[in-house]
Structures are given as structure tokens and as C-alpha cells.
Amino acid sequence: MAAQAFEDIVEDFEFIEDWEDRYRYVIEQGKDMPALDEALCVPATKVDGCASQVWLHPTIEGGVFRFDGASDAMIVSGLIAVLRKLYNGLSLAEVMSVDARAELERLGLNEHLSSQRSNGLRAMIERIRLVVSEAA
């Protein structure tokens, strides 16, 4: 189960046939994302396993998961934005029940990302799942 904001991306992707346009769409999602406070770009929030610099700052309030993030790469910022739309606003149990790989396959991302980007995306998902599992 993905958040409704992610379902909106899936619907948008149905109308965008060309992968280059989809790539630009993902980048735009990253540009539209609120900036992460530089004070939060510290080793504790850095995600290892990404080719780019990536920071994720999760919060859990009232059992609801949210996170903000940043990267020094435009496409990775877009991937962070996509993950935010996949997970933000879900309960901890819902976050753990999301099959991120299957959800992202609906966008065709697995076929069009380099192996380094795919590894980084997996590392971000693993970090989110770790944070939620530790909080549950």
C-alpha cells in the first residue's frame, strides 16, 4: 500500500510515454521538494551505499512516518522525492508493509537507473525500513 501522493505519480507516468520525459519529471519532483536544513546534513543522517551524497531525516509523530532528504545529484533528489511520496504520511505498520521494489517497478525505474543509482535507491529504502523497525 503506497500513499496517495505516490499513486498520483503512477497516474502521471501513464501519460508520459518517453523515458527521457519521465526522467525529467522525476528531476522536477526533486526540485519541488523542500530543502533540507544544512544542519541536518550530518553523518548520522547520511545514507551509505549511494554514489551521490544523500541525507535522510526521518520523523515519527503520533505513529505517522515522514522524512525529508537531500542529495547533491538532481536525479537522486528526484528519487528522494518519489520515496517521500511513497512513504510520507503512512503509519509505521503501513511503511513496513510497503513493497517498495514492486511499487517502484510500476514506474519502470528499475529498468532505467544505473546499477549505482539502483543500489543507492535500495540503500535509502533500507534506511527508512531500519528507522521504522527501530521505532516500532
Rank of each mutant, 00 (worst) to 15 (best):
E14M: 13
L36E: 11
F6R: 02
M33T: 14
Q53Y: 13
D12N: 15
E105D: 15
E38A: 15
A44W: 07
L36H: 12
E111I: 02
F67K: 03
G89T: 08
R129V: 09
N110I: 04
G63H: 07
R122H: 10
F15R: 12
Q53T: 12
F13R: 06
S114Y: 10
Y87S: 09
D32G: 12
V10G: 05
G30V: 01
L130A: 14
A39W: 00
L109H: 01
F13E: 03
E28G: 14
R101C: 02
F65W: 07
G78P: 09
L92E: 10
R117L: 07
P58Y: 06
P43C: 11
F67W: 02
S97H: 11
R122G: 01
T45S: 11
P43A: 12
V47A: 06
V82Q: 00
I128T: 11
A39P: 01
A70V: 04
R101V: 13
L121Y: 03
N110E: 14
M124Y: 06
V42F: 05
S77V: 00
A93K: 15
S118M: 14
R129F: 02
S97Q: 14
A100E: 07
I75Q: 06
E17L: 11
G63S: 08
R101Q: 14
A73E: 01
L36T: 12
S118N: 14
L90Y: 05
E14Y: 12
V98N: 02
V131W: 02
T59A: 11
